[in-house]
Design a binder for these strands. Structure first.
Length: 570
DNA sequence: CGACTTTGACCTGCGC
DNA sequence: GCGCAGGTCAAAGTCG
């Protein structure tokens, strides 16, 4: 019998003062949980008469309307913020201007010496203020410079480790290389293999994953060999055997998957369908809320106590479409309970709402980045449009945030967004700087024949360019889609926490190609996804990047979308 | 009544 | 083969 925390159901169900108190406490957490900004959960609370006062989710992509009150609070942001179309100005300059105006007015109105002295004092005060602001600005810039240096060092270390990893992986898997892999390899390096293959055919992402999955290659070899049939039966859950029909759990799931692909034409397809081959993307974020809002609708189907962690792990299944295979696990970090670890597995078989798209793009792009390697972005040619390349071009700073674990049962890419540098604003500014270079992405987006089409998430940012097939609901809203910069700065304004800003920044600008590349499945749903790329764009356009009540994520949202809870005991 | 959460039971994979 | 841990199912309970 497994360990379980004391029953929390009653506590969860009966809204009491302590729950509200918890909410109150969360408002002071690193994530802004105020309802006024139109968070994803807010739609549910207000629109569906949900449980008031209950905050079970923190919106990762809270594009706060509070951005209207957005202000530069440091000089560096001001340096890069102007490109977002904002007219923000340096506070210090404002103060000076105001004071100067007061001086002029006073001089005109009063000629007395006392007033003159007073004006001199005011002027002196204004000068001192300007000096202080200037000094602060210099300090921030200097701190930013220092952090950049640290970041570059980290990046170098990461690259070195990554290449070591590639070498080790190549040594481990070369004897068991999949036939298709060999065909694609052409004697070139592992990295190059993936680069070329991925650029030519997104489906080869699955092939690349074989390098990352120790069991995968051996399985593929088994399936490709003379024992393919037997191995296939075994690996597929033995759905042909009578005994397995009565089995619950994994066999049923595999049987269900086999229903969608009754006849496997080759070993690659069979191997790729195995659940164990799905890579996972784990996002670590600091949050007091029990679950981050990623835009999708999730239904909790289980909760377990994981060994070595006092906090239970919750299992969620995507309910935005029937049969969507995507699942996620939510668990608090054992070491730091403020860190929420959300692990995604599988690929959506439906269009995603914008918020979900951003998260999917973020994780997928990070995964693509890691799968293809940091060197990929520096390549020209085919790889110039590889999602990883885009990710790198857009986020040269991001490589240090993501790690890949090949030791886990699943190839798991971890996006660690919990590490807030001391000069977070400086690093954020680096991202802002990166985001300020949209041409790195737009050309690829504009080319329909690219390995992946226009990133839907990005499409809505393109000026003068309506996403093809934009839903009337979107166009009818008449709301201006925020620019990348605005999204980032709005997030910064909504929540000074760096991780939040980071997520918003990455999510807003990562091209959808990465999503497509990684979401491509060998079953053909990939084709649907690829074909629906513009559909994603529709989805992205159908609702504003700001999840507001005006633009619900989906028309068919279950009533309790916002009240999904993860009862993580602490 | 439907949608959702909770939770005990069950299944599978893996290590010993 | 056994035990453990992870993952999932499905009945029961809850809520609007």
């Amino acid at each position: 019998m497994e360990l379980r925390p004391p029953p929390k159901q009653q506590h969860h169900r009966r809204r009491g003062s302590e729950e509200e108190e918890e909410v109150t406490g969360m408002e002071h957490g690193p994530f802004s949980l105020r309802a006024g900004a139109g968070g994803f959960w807010r739609h549910d609370d207000e629109g569906r008469g949900g449980r008031r006062g209950e905050i079970k989710e923190v919106d990762f992509f809270l594009a706060s309307r509070d951005a209207a009150s957005w202000r530069h609070d440091d000089g560096f942001r001001g340096t890069h913020g102007g490109g977002g179309g904002r007219d923000d100005v340096n506070i210090g300059l404002d103060l000076l201007t105001t004071t100067t105006g007061a001086v002029a007015g006073g001089a005109a109105a009063v000629a007395g010496e006392e007033d003159t002295a007073k004006n001199h004092r005011k002027e002196a005060t204004a000068t001192a203020t300007a000096t202080a602001v200037d000094a602060e600005l210099r300090r921030v810039v200097e701190e930013n410079r220092r952090l950049r240096g640290m970041l570059e060092e980290l990046t170098r270390s990461y690259s070195a480790l990554y290449h070591q990893f590639l070498q080790v992986t190549q040594q481990n898997h070369h004897p068991h290389r999949h036939p298709d892999l060999i065909m694609n390899n052409n004697g070139s390096s592992l990295t190059q293999t993936h680069r070329t293959a991925a650029a030519l055919n997104p489906t080869t992402t699955a092939t690349t994953q074989q390098f990352l999955e120790p069991r995968a290659s051996s399985t593929a070899q088994l399936l490709a060999g003379s024992d393919a049939a037997a191995a296939s039966d075994k690996e597929a859950g033995g759905d042909a055997s009578p005994s397995s029909l009565s089995n619950a759990g994994g066999n049923k799931r595999r049987a269900a998957q086999d229903e969608t692909a009754p006849a496997r034409e080759n070993s690659e397809q069979a191997a790729a369908e195995l659940p164990c081959r799905k890579p996972r993307v784990s996002v670590r974020a600091r949050s007091e809320a029990p679950m981050i809002s990623d835009g999708c609708q999730w239904r909790k189907y289980g909760q377990k106590m994981a060994k070595g962690n006092p906090c239970p792990r919750a299992y969620y299944r995507c309910t935005m479409a029937i049969g969507c295979p995507v699942r996620k696990q939510v668990q608090r970090c054992a070491d730091d309970k403020t860190v929420l670890i959300t692990t995604y597995e599988g690929n959506h078989n439906h269009q995603l709402p914008p918020a979900a798209t951003t998260m999917a793009n973020t994780t997928s792009a990070a995964a693509a980045m890691l799968l293809s390697g940091p060197a990929a972005s520096r390549d020209g040619g085919l790889l110039g449009h590889h999602p990883a390349a885009i990710f790198h071009q857009s986020f040269p700073y991001a490589s240090t945030m993501a790690t890949l674990s090949a030791s886990a049962p699943f190839p798991t890419i971890t996006l660690d967004l919990t590490q807030t540098p001391a000069g977070g604003a400086g690093s954020a500014a680096g991202l802002l700087h990166a985001l300020h270079r949209p041409p790195a992405i737009h050309p690829a987006a504009a080319a329909p024949a690219m390995p992946f089409a226009l990133a839907p998430q990005l499409a809505m940012y393109l000026p003068q360019r309506a996403a093809p097939g934009m839903l009337p609901a979107a166009t009818g809203l008449g709301t201006r889609q925020p620019s990348v910069m605005e999204t980032v700065t709005a997030a910064l304004a909504a929540d000074p926490n760096f991780t939040t800003a980071l997520v918003a920044a990455i999510s807003s600008a990562v091209a959808g190609g990465a999503h497509q590349a990684l979401s491509t499945t060998p079953r053909g749903s990939a084709g649907a996804l690829a074909g629906d790329d513009s559909g994603d764009g529709n989805a992205a356009a159908s609702a504003s990047a700001e999840p507001t009540a005006d633009a619900p994520a989906t028309s068919g949202s279950p009533p309790r979308l916002a009240t999904q809870s993860c009862t993580t005991s602490t």
